[in-house]
Amino acid sequence: MTADPAAHFGRLPATVIEVRDAAVELGGRRVWHDVRVDVAAGEFAAILGPNGVGKSTLLKAMLGLQPLAAGQIRVLATSPARARRAIGYLPQRRSFDASTRIRGVDLIRLGVDGHRWGLPLPGRPARQRKQRIAELVELVGAGRYAHRPVGTLSGGEQQRILIAQALARRPRILLLDEPLDSLDLPNQAAIAALVGRIGRDQGVAVVMVAHDVNPIVAHLDRVVYLGPAGSVVGAPEQVLDSASLTALYGTPVEVLRTAGGRTVVVGVPDSPVGHDHQPVGG
């Protein structure tokens, strides 16, 4: 209901994603409406909310893959479809199964030049490509396993490879759909920290769909809560409070501050502290 002006860390951020009063209908049903949010370069935003509320749909709308029923989305001051070249996207998935016989570096390479037609030319372009792949492997810390078949890697390792692939063409925006799903707690924390660091260091705006805010809350600049009754947008310290979340979900939600200054959300239907994994929709 509020789209607060982006003023973080005392700098003037350039807005890269503007969502203006947007609404989406799926099969005649209005899944969300009046969503208003700005995301600036280098910011880390999360899209949160219960199952089936259309979190992934909002990400798809930012990619121009989901038409709006009302409102407007501008990405990099143009239409989402036209801005797509500057977006790195990580779709929701389970994982590559063990029989997938292709290496991590091959997947990263597809991010670099997988969209190009014709045979790859040897010489300078090939050397530049190799160097870029090596940089990306280094960036996500995948040096130890990038040359192994991706099907043999753990969930966290696969996710790092895919993040490197999404970053291959130096996007200005990174859209991640449930990248922490089906990871264990240490890996959730590690991937969240990695994404937060890459976004800040490279000035990349990150929008992540998540069903649990706790692993990422320390890195977030902005939170978009989608609920059946409406949406709430703002800085985490504004949005993450017991009263507003309880009103949004219609069920008791507590926001606790730990002695170490950490924020923990308890009782949100899709954010159980015990991490029992429910099927994820929307």
């Binding site: 990619l63 893959l65 797509r84 070249r85 977006i87 996207y89 990580l90 779709p91 997938t100 292709i102 091959d106 997947l107 597809l110 991010g111 997988g114 969209h115 895919l162 692939q165 999404a166 063409r169």
Partner: peptide
């Protein structure tokens, strides 16, 4: 073949 959805967004 490896990743249809990502490929589509990348312009394939």
């Amino acid at each position: 073949s490896t990743d249809a959805e990502t490929a589509r967004v990348a312009g394939v």
